[in-house]
Amino acid sequence: MRFDAIVIGGGQAGCEATARLLDASLKVCLISAGLTMEDENTDPWRENRAMAQRGATVLRGDRAVSAVLEAGKVLSVRTVNLDDEPLEAALFILATGKYFSRGLLSDMEHIYEPVFGADVDYIPGRSHWYDQDFSAPQPFLSFGVKTDERGRVLIGGKSIGNLYATGDILARDAAEADWAQIMNDYAGK
């Protein structure tokens, strides 16, 4: 199945990105696993429904698991529920959040991004991930995906031409692309 753009992650950042892409009259797919930390101001399901009503294809309760890359670009992603149907697009937005929403996974020593294997800015070895004082700033909350100066996601130190990250999944110091830039890149394909 082919779209203009695919947004991975249906939380606040993913919905905002979807709305922008719909504003530009793109054919958008939103993959929403539904693992958002809600608060009184946001209701991700309501937002997801609103996106569907505006014409986006919303895969609710689904999760991207792998991607196919070629020549520095993402060609397609696969999800749990549509594992025999690659979802193709010209533009990909990664908005899967941090740990709670499983945008970043971890083992005893490492933190990684599971869909693309994007570069994660963190310190290996979990004793560096926390401060023993609960109320102090916590290093693990500043970890996240690395991007280049234009906000494109880095994999193995190389910029991926059509993959941008937005929201919590970004490392604290990582640059976030502005929308004019993204649409500009998209128009140039």
């Binding site: 926390y130 609960f134 693990f140 909350l141």
Partner: peptide, 25 residues
């Protein structure tokens, strides 16, 4: 929360890390 934090930090990976983020937020 401080006592809970003391117990969760030695096992700070996987689902515990998810919980830790939840607690912080």
């Amino acid at each position: 929360l401080q006592e809970r934090w003391k117990g969760i930090t030695p096992v700070f990976w996987g689902d515990s890390l998810r919980e830790a983020e939840y607690m912080q937020r």
